[in-house]
């Protein structure tokens, strides 16, 4: 047997037998696709901020958002965000006509549905053997096509500096956070609270020099 033939044989065995079995499935659940994302502009003088104001409404962006997100958890989300900011030294300004806050905090939600289409040979065989000759007689020699619809939701929190020019900043959004994931599985009040708390836990720089 020549070297070339031997190596070809071995590589063929690898490609056919070993490589397809190499990629593990970790059995991830719906919740495993949830993420908490934060970002800030380096150099932002967070310690100089004292006050914030936040509208008492979560802005819904997009046509599907009202239907998919609903408003069951709006009050919980807003109060949890406010509580976290206050725990970090911010004082909430309620009447912005009387007092201009250092930063505005806006909360928005968006949700969308996505549909993906995929072909499947397995379904064909399952149905074929499972239901006898009924639904697919005469046999259909081709793949079946299926669709999967999933909903993705996101809550965005933006912190906007009110004294942008005074502080020499060029980008008004000095801190931003978002929670996103599949709108399925078990969404609960503790779950939402945990995720919002995580936004602040991974933003240790977000501390004022003290409320006044």
């Amino acid at each position: 047997m020549s070297v070339r033939r031997l190596i070809s044989l071995m590589i063929s065995a690898l490609v056919l037998g070993v490589i397809p079995s190499c990629f593990p499935s970790h059995g991830l659940s719906v919740e495993d696709y949830d993420t908490v994302l934060t970002g800030y502009i380096p150099g932002t003088p967070f310690a100089s901020y004292r006050t914030f104001a936040m509208p008492d409404t979560i802005i819904h962006v997009g046509d599907d958002t009202d239907k998919l997100l609903g408003r069951s958890y709006d009050a919980l989300m807003l109060s949890t965000i406010a509580r976290n900011l206050e725990a970090r030294g911010f004082r909430r300004v309620i009447d912005t006509l009387q007092e201009t806050p250092d930063v505005m905090v806006y909360v928005a939600g968006t949700a969308s549905s996505f549909t993906s289409y995929y072909s499947s040979w397995n379904d064909y065989w399952d149905d074929y053997w499972g239901w006898g000759w009924g639904p697919y007689y005469p046999p259909y020699w081709g793949p079946s096509y299926n669709s999967l619809t999933y909903n993705i939701g996101r809550i965005n929190i933006d912190m906007v500096d009110n004294g942008l020019a005074r502080r020499g900043l060029t980008n008004p959004i000095v801190w931003s956070g978002s929670m996103s994931g599949l709108l399925a599985g078990s969404i609960s009040r503790p779950y939402i609270t945990t995720k919002i708390n995580q936004l602040f836990e991974q933003s240790p720089y977000l501390v004022t020099g003290g409320a006044q």
Partner: peptide, 29 residues
């Protein structure tokens, strides 16, 4: 050829995104 794959839950990864220093938390594969 060797391949490894591992799952870490509730992990935070820091990265740069444009003008922002960012962090993302979740289940990491």
């Amino acid at each position: 050829y060797n391949m490894w794959s591992d799952v870490f839950r509730d992990r935070t990864h820091e990265f740069q995104s444009g003008a922002y220093d960012a962090a993302i938390n979740g289940t990491q594969v």
